[in-house]
Amino acid sequence: MMRGKRRGMVVLHAVFAFLLATFVLFPFAVMLSMSLKAPDEQFTSPPYLIPHRPTMENYIEVFGQGSMFARYFLNSILVAFGTTVVVLGVSIFSSYGYARLAFPGKSVLFTLLLLSQLFPLAAIIVPLYRIMSQAGLIDSFFSLIVGYLAFSVPVGVWLLRSFFLGIPRDLEEAAVIDGCTRMQAFWKIVIPLARPGIGATAAYILFITWQEFMFALTFITTQNKRTLPVGIFDFVGQYETNWGNLMAASILICIPVFILFLFVQKQLVGGLTEGAVKG
């Protein structure tokens, strides 16, 4: 009796999971389907998901003559990884400080850090443009990386601090008693233990910089310095959109994110929730 009830629950779960997966994956399926269709198959009535004459034409055109897509891709990788490395470098030390050290004004500074997250991007974009312009950084990758630091370092510090707080202080103290310096204890004990947290933070920063649009649109003008979220609009015309190419490009943009997610999935899901309750 009890077993039957449990089996019923399992079936119900499976049904709901299936429905949810369909709901979530359907747009992606349409994207994939459209990217493999020639224009005459894209907007039929009634529509169908599986192309009758699948074609790679759209993917070839995305990398074809006159298309800067490959360049945009490289630029995005450069900017996203560049930002992530710097953010991690800064926020690992900073968040450890906020987690472990006592210094005057600590809580005020930490609050200020979080406060910086409350400004809508649209409100700070013009002042930032002027600052970048005066610093001679406009239209360079630096302007993007520096701009992204402004909103991703606070997130990084905030996330990582929670992870550091979750590591028992006793472990470091034990290491110090055994002859480690504070720095050694940090490198040899704390960092390895916080690795899931660092991985999760890195992945998070990568995700948000990979898809950032507004700064990329505002700061970059030259075509061969544009990043993907801006560059993908090359396929959207004034009156008409090249849907096949656009969808092929969208699929390609998703791939690095999928790969990354496969690698860090465990850490990301575990990591973010772990941090959440200690915050």
Partner: peptide
């Protein structure tokens, strides 16, 4: 030449013109 897709073009022009560049 610098080219822009339609949907970004107006914003780019207005920002650049307003910033004097």
């Amino acid at each position: 030449f610098t080219v822009f897709p339609y949907s970004e073009y107006r914003d780019k022009l207005l920002i650049a013109a307003a910033a004097g560049a």
